[in-house]
Amino acid sequence: MNKVMSNKWMIAFYVLPALILVGILIFIPLGLSAYYGLMDWNGIGDMEFIGMENYITAVQDMKFWDSAFHSFLLAFFSTLSLIVYLAISMILASKIKGADLLRKIYLIPMLLSSVAIAQLWIKVFNPSNGILNKMLMGLGVDNPPAWLANPDIVLYAIFIPILWQYAGFYILIYYAALKNIPESLIEAAKIDGASPLQIAYRIKLPLIAGVVKVTIVLAIVGSLKYFDLIYVMTGGGPNGASEVMASYMYKLAFSTNDFGYGSAIGFLLLVITLIVTVIVRKLTADKEELQY
C-alpha cells in the first residue's frame, strides 16, 4: 500500500502538470513584473536598466495618486455597504417566507459579466433615454445629471452598479453564517426579554464576527483590484475622474506602451494589496474566539 502510494513517478505524474502551469503562468510573471519595473521599456525594443527610477516617478506621479485615492474611496464605500448587506441578511434570516428564493434573486447580477453589467448601466445612466433619468424626470426632476460625464459624480455613479453586482454575494455569505447560529441561543435571549434589535446587535453580530471580518478583507482587496467595469464604462474618464490603480496601469502598458512604468505600477498594486490585507487582518484580529 505505502509503496504504491508513495511512488515518486506517480506523484510527479499527478501533481506536476498543475504545478508547472501555475508556476509558469502565475509565479514567473509576478517575479518578472518586479524585474520589468526596473526597466525603461516600450514592450518591443530593448530594455534599459534604470534602477528605481520608475518607482520614484510613481511616487511623484499625481495621476497615480489620484487613481490610488479613487481605489481607496471605492474600498471605503464597499466596506460601508457591508452594513446594509448585513442588515438585509439579518431580516432575511429571521423566519421570512421565501427567503431562499429572495437570496437567489439577489444573486443574479453577480453571475453576469462585468462587461455586460457595464454596458447595461451605461444605458441606465444615459442622460436622456436611460431609465434612471426617465424615472427622475417622471418624478419631476427638471435637470437630472449626466451621470457618467460629470467628473464630480462619476465615481459615485459607478459605485451603484458595483453595489448591484456584489449585494447578492455578501448577502449570501451573511445569510449562510446567520443560519448557522443555533436556534436555542436566540430563544434563550428572547425568554430573557431581549428585543429583536438587541438580539441582532448583541448576539447575532458577535457570533458571525469571523465571517464579517473575512468580508471586510474581501471588500477592500476586491475594490483595490477593481478594473473591468470601470474600464468599460468610462475608461477612467472623464479626464481621469474615475481612474483606478488597475485601469491606470493597464493604460500605461497597453495604450501608451510604457511597459516598464506600467509593470512598476502593477507591482505596486500587488504590494499595496498585500499590505492592506495584512493591516486589515491585524486591525480586525480576534482577542478571543467566541464559542457556541
Binding site: V22, I24, L25, I26, F27, I28, P29, L30, L32, S33, Y36, G43, L224, K225, F227, A246, M249, Y250, A253, F254, F259, G262, S263, G266, F267, L269, L270, T273, L274, T277
Partner: peptide, 17 residues
C-alpha cells in the same frame, strides 16, 4: 498563494511571454 495574486500584476509579463 496563487489565490491571492491580483491578475493585473501579472498581465504585462504574461503578455510578453
Amino acid at each position: 498563494v496563487g489565490l491571492m495574486i491580483p491578475i493585473h500584476s501579472a498581465i504585462i509579463p504574461l503578455f510578453n511571454m
